[in-house]
Structure formats: structure tokens, C-alpha cells
Design a protein around this nucleic acid. Structure first.
Lengths: 149, 149
DNA sequence: GTTGATTAGTTAGCCTAGCTAAACTATACT
DNA sequence: AGTATAGTTTAGCTAGGCTAACTAATCAAC
């Protein structure tokens, strides 16, 4: 049987299962995120700042698909928590660049570590063969979905 | 080589990659979920009702880890949208069983179909061998994470 | 069988967070 | 000078979350 003949049907099936698994995974991961003490909106914004480098508040607002006033408040909250700072642009002093602090990076990294650790303990229960299968799959998924980051 | 010798290290690596893929997947899924017009809390509750069958409001509250009053409001909102109905238990008339309507099932199924379809188009690009790997992985992940449902 | 305790759910009142539009300030551009 | 842009402030909405107080139904005990 060729891949093309079987492909579409099996892709749908795999997509379905992967989707279910992702939902379940997402659930447990969300619980770990709560431990950070940050809301989803703040955590997401912080993540963009940490990985996307210093960037103007307006750009951050667009990236997160919220209005400027909303982002002002989110950034203000993160700033009060010491996770980011505003830096006036030297070229254009209207612009406030948002930069992650060390504490901000650390906070994000801790959250990631928590989620990964949780996952790891689950995976560690698996027989070696299944773990190897997941390893290959993770590689494929990484290629498929990780482009954006 | 035994699984135990190699297990911990590889589990950590796989967990890391799986985590990254899940985040990426989560991002796109979130966008699709917004198309449903339901908030995360309502969508999640609806999902439990649809898959978990008619169940008392209190149980639903516990499942979603919120207080009873909060669930009362969420259910009321879903009821006004015509997605669920309350049914007084015939045995114990204190109990209000929450049941999904056809519209509720359909709404959830539509969202799922959107997400699965998006995933499917991505997976369809893969060579058959990699797809087969994902198939096995999906099966394993399903067993690992889907227990709660 | 009436009283008392327990349980399920709702109502009321309050807080916080995210979101928006509109008005305002400050800077930059022409 | 006049216009455009970046960000903030103000005012107000919606939604999720809580606790406390209430109603209604069940159960237990005497």
C-alpha cells in the first residue's frame, strides 16, 4: 500500500488522537502554570518579551492581539512584579521598549522547568520501546510546529 | 542497554521537546477555540458535560475545580445560549443534572473539527513513515494523559 | 412524624482581571 | 504651524472567581 493511498485517512485519525492527547496535556500543563502566580495574559506577554527581546509596547500589543491600553496595564503589572522594565528608546522617545529582567527570565524558566519535570515523571513510567517511539515523534512534531519559536 | 539506565535522561529530553511542540500546538488551538465564541471556562465546562454525560452541577464544579456558585453562573450562561439544560433528578430533587443539548454537542464538535482539520493538513505533508511514528506516539500519549476523561 | 442536621444549588455582594473607546500628553515628522 | 504616532489615563463593560447567607430537599433520630 502506498503512502498516498492510505495517507489522508490515517492523517485524520492521527490528527484526532494527537488533538485529544494535546488537550489532556494542555490541561495538566495549565495547572502547572497556575503555580507561577501569573495569569495567562501576563504569562504570555512575559514569554514574548523574554524570547522576543526588548520590543516596543505597541508591538507587544499587536503580537498579543490586544489594544494598547490593555498592554499598558499588563506591562505595568509585570513591572510592579519586577519581571520587566520599560526603557525609553533613545532614538524616538515616544517609544517604551519592554525588557525582561533577570527575575522575569527566571520566572519563565521556572515555569517551563516545572512543566517539563512533570512531563518527565510521566514519561519515565513508560517502557523503553514506547519512550523511543515518543522520541521520534517529538522530533517530527518539533519540525512541524516549532518553526514559529 | 536497559530502559532504566537510559530512561531518565532520554525522558527529560523527550519531555522537553514534547513540551515545546505542545506549546506551539496550544497556540493554534487557542486561536481556533476563540472562533467558538465561548470563553475557556465555558468551553471547558461544556466539554465535560458533553463527554461526561448528564451530571450534577456540584460534580461539574469539582471537575472544573471551581466553587458551586461559579458553576451555577457558568451553567446559567450556557443554558441561555441553548447549549445545555438543567434536569432535576427524579430520585433526589435537590440535584440539578446538567445535560448537553444537540446544539451544545454540535458547537463542541465544530470546534474540534476545526482544530483537527488544521492539524490534519499539517500532518498530510509528512512522509508515510513519519506519520506512522506519530500514530504510535498518539496512541501512547493517549494512554498516558487521557485517563482523566 | 416532627425536629434537627446535612446536602445541593441559588442568590447577593464583592473583588480582580481583561478588554474597549475616547480623551489626553508628549514626541516626532513635514 | 499642523499632522501623525506612541503611550497613558479615564471611565465603563463583562466575566470569572470568591464567601456568606438563603431555600429546598433529604436523611436521621427520637
Amino acid at each position: 500500500m502506498t503512502a498516498d493511498a492510505r495517507g489522508p485517512a490515517i492523517a485524520r485519525e492521527v490528527a484526532d488522537r494527537l488533538h485529544s492527547a494535546a488537550i489532556a496535556l494542555l490541561r495538566t500543563a495549565r495547572k502547572e502554570d497556575e503555580a507561577s502566580g501569573l495569569s495567562a495574559a501576563r504569562l504570555s506577554a512575559l514569554s514574548v518579551v523574554v524570547f522576543g527581546g526588548p520590543l516596543p509596547l505597541g508591538e507587544l500589543a499587536r503580537a498579543e492581539q490586544v489594544s494598547a491600553p490593555t498592554m499598558t496595564r499588563i506591562v505595568s503589572a509585570l513591572e510592579e512584579l519586577g519581571l520587566v522594565v520599560r526603557q525609553a528608546d533613545t532614538q524616538d522617545r515616544r517609544i517604551q521598549r519592554v525588557v525582561a529582567t533577570e527575575a522575569g527570565r527566571k520566572k519563565l524558566e521556572e515555569g517551563r522547568a516545572r512543566r517539563v519535570e512533570f512531563l518527565r515523571t510521566r514519561l519515565a513510567e513508560l517502557p523503553a520501546e514506547e519512550l523511543a517511539q515518543l522520541e521520534k515523534a517529538a522530533e517530527v512534531l518539533g519540525r512541524l510546529f516549532r518553526k514559529g519559536r
